[in-house]
Amino acid sequence: MPMLDVKNIHKSFETTEVLKGISFSMEKEETKVIIGTSGTGKSTLLRCLNQLDPPDEGEVWLDGEELTNPSIDINRIRQKIGFVFQDFNLFNHLTALRNVSIGLEKVKQLNKEKARERAMDELKRVGLEKQINQYPAQLSGGQKQRVGIARALAMDPDIILFDEPTSALDPELIGDVLDVMKSLYGKVAMLIVTHEMGFARNVADEIIFMEGGVIVEKGPPKQMFQSPTKQRTKEFLGRIATLYGAE
């Protein structure tokens, strides 16, 4: 049985159907990258998974539990699903350290000292041991996002969802964040929405190409980049190559 199983997800906002039946599954510690044009429902899909935007139809299963079941304690489940936002969403009134430790204290009920230690470890892991006492406004975009990743990691999630984690960053800061993400490969499952094709190609176990609310094609990076079977995938990758420079 796969760790995460997504079955036939549908989601509409008012009259537009954004997701038209998405199904896929993920194993423990697997890394998958979702690519596709903007506005094609990739971010919505991520939010459907941890029920921030509950899907209208379909099921999401994690570790044998059905998350789409309304009677489930979703706050308990969300601890197991880390989320990294495009615009960071750090808590502005807390230092980097407290941003990471607050979930441990208030949700995982760790005592202050333990939560602090754990938060320190996570910040070290993302290379921010010098910035622990700074407030979000005093950090660069890349640093903010690394705090965001540390905050997600600290909760010991089974899977981390990344919603375009580098789109809001200046080009020269993207590398640091991608390096941190690379270092997590094989340690925790990651589902990443991104436009960084180089990263997708080098790190992903599987690439999922989405368009118009459906999965057009999925497969290992090599196959997807060199010999995609669908015409749409070819066109998209061709366009991306001209936009971001061929790899």
């Binding site: 706050n75 308990r76 989320f83 936002f85 750090l90 808590f91 607050i102 949700v107 905050r151």
Partner: peptide
């Protein structure tokens, strides 16, 4: 949203 996704 970030707080909720931490499980709060």
């Amino acid at each position: 949203i970030a707080a909720q996704s931490l499980g709060m």
